[in-house]
Amino acid sequence: MGDGTRAAQAEVNRARARARTGTVRVVRAVGWTLVWLGLLTLGFVVHQVWITSWFARQHQTVLATERLAYFADAVPVEAEVTVEGSIVPEDEPAPEAEVLALPLVVESAPELHSAFALIRISALENLAEGWNVVEGVDVSDLKTGAGHIPATPLPGQPGNSVISGHRTTYGAPFNRLDELVPGDRIEVDTAIGTHVYEMRTSVIVAPADVWVLEPRQGAWLTLTTCNPEYSARERLVILAELVEGPNAEVIGMMR
């Protein structure tokens, strides 16, 4: 083999080595990228499922103290609600525009972002002990507890009181709302007492379907959460009607 041939072979070998090195570098870079993406994804799952829930539970401890202080300071007030001709025995003719004044126990509006109620659902293991409810549904409110939409009546009052909560993160208080069946009891403790609602129905709506917030005759509690689990694509809405509590009888008479 001549010198020229050996030199040519050596050049070929060097070229092959360079190619191998390049391929190894690409494979190594792809491999490390996948490793880091896997770690970031794993971190995301751990953060969302465990870390946010840990934070929420710490907040719940603080909110429980805040709520109990609110209960101790709040002064229930009896107000009157006027109803025109709503109470008429079936065997009597309806009077003309009779106006009745019915006593209703009310509380002043709680401060925004503060805890003012406790929601309990004995049928659901994770809510049997209760979860504190704060006034407001800002992102920061819902990280700490369930949130009451301030534009709707307080629980136990006439109309449609709406409370929202997380389904999968931040303690996931409303994780198992889909397991509720008609007749299940939902209890809400407020400064004026415990209001007991019975689940009537559930519906799945789009996140922008604000009709679920609209006022209703009687006293209703509407619970909203994300649906399906692990997705913010829709909302699961639970509709429950007041059956017991400081105002249940009066509100029943208003119908």
Binding site: L40, H47, Q48, V137, L142, T169, Y170, V210, A232
Partner: peptide, 21 residues
């Protein structure tokens, strides 16, 4: 930074808090 990124991503992707409107 990762915590805030995960919070944003989780709220957008997994669970926005469940409120309507």
């Amino acid at each position: 930074g990762l915590h805030f990124f995960y919070e944003w991503l989780g709220g957008w992707l997994l669970d926005s808090g469940g409120t309507v409107g």
